[in-house]
Amino acid sequence: MSRYRPPRPKGSFYITPEGEKAMRDEVFQLWKIERPQVTSVVHEAAKNGDRSENGDYIYGKKRLREIDSRVRFLTNRLENLKVIHDKPSDQSKVFFGAWVTVEDEQGKENTYRIVGPDEFDLSQNKLSMDSPLARALLGKSIDDEVIFKTPEGERDLYIVAVSYTPPQS
C-alpha cells in the first residue's frame, strides 16, 4: 500500500486578531523559550561522549527538528494570512468572525464563532470557515434555515442569533 497522500487543499487565508496573537505567542514560546532549553540539554548530552546510545541527545535533536519545523510553518503561514479587524457593515448577516447561535429540530441551541482554519477548535465552539456548516451559514440572516451535509446525511438548523461581540457567559 502506498504512503502517498495527495496534498490538502489550501485553507482560507483569514484569521481573527486573537488567532494571530495566539500563533505569534506560539512562535515566541517555541523559539525564545523552549528551543534554548532543548539546545542546552543537547549540548550537555553531547559532552557525555557516545551519542549513538545517548537518549537525551537523540530525543533532544528530534525535538529541535520538530520545533524548527513548526516555527517555519507558523512563520510562513503568518506571512500569508490576512487579519480581519473590521466588523461587516451589515451585522445582521453571518460573516467571518461572527458568533452564530443555531437551533436544531429538537430545540437544542449551540453557539459557534466563524474563524479561520488555523484557529478552529470545536471544544471552544470555534468553527472553521471552510467547514460545511460554516459555509452553509455564511451570508445567512436570523431565522434563515441552513441545510448542510454531514457524514450521517443532511441536517437542518435555524439561525437564532448573530453577533459580532463575544456572548456573555
Rank of each mutant, 00 (worst) to 15 (best):
F120P: 00
L78H: 03
T75K: 12
N80H: 08
F95Y: 11
G49Q: 10
I33N: 14
S40L: 10
S163V: 00
S141N: 15
G19D: 05
V100N: 06
A161Y: 05
G153A: 11
G19P: 00
D104A: 04
G11D: 06
P36T: 04
A161W: 01
K93I: 12
E105K: 15
I58G: 03
T165N: 11
S128Q: 02
N125W: 07
S128M: 04
E20Q: 12
E145F: 03
I114H: 00
Q168K: 14
K47W: 05
G19I: 08
Y4I: 04
I84R: 02
K21E: 13
V162M: 09
K62I: 07
R72T: 11
R72S: 11
D68L: 04
L133M: 13
Q37C: 08
K47D: 07
S12F: 07
V102G: 00
R155C: 05
K126D: 05
L133H: 02
D130W: 06
V71R: 00
E44R: 14
K32R: 15
Q168R: 12
E103M: 13
V83L: 00
K140S: 07
L133E: 03
V42F: 01
T16Y: 00
K82T: 08
D144T: 01
V71H: 07
P117D: 08
G116S: 04
I33Y: 11
L64E: 00
N80M: 15
R65A: 14
E105T: 12
F148H: 14
K47C: 05
E34D: 14
S169A: 11
G11K: 02
A45F: 05
G11P: 04
V146A: 03
G60R: 02
Y4K: 10
N48K: 15
D118I: 03
K126H: 15
S128H: 03
E66C: 01
K108Q: 10
I33F: 11
G116E: 05
M23V: 12
D86A: 14
G55I: 10
N125T: 06
T101W: 01
D156C: 09
K82G: 04
K10H: 12
H85C: 03
A98V: 09
L74C: 00
S141I: 03
K149P: 05
L127E: 00
R5C: 13
W31E: 15
S12W: 02
P9T: 05
G153V: 06
G97V: 00
I15P: 04
T165Y: 04
Q124C: 08
E18W: 13
Y158G: 07
L133Y: 10
A134E: 02
S169M: 09
Q106Y: 11
V71S: 04
S131R: 07
E119P: 01
N80V: 06
S128V: 02
A98G: 08
A98M: 08
G116D: 00
A46H: 04
F96I: 01
D56Y: 09
P132A: 06
I33C: 06
R8E: 06
V42H: 00
V94W: 04
Y57R: 05
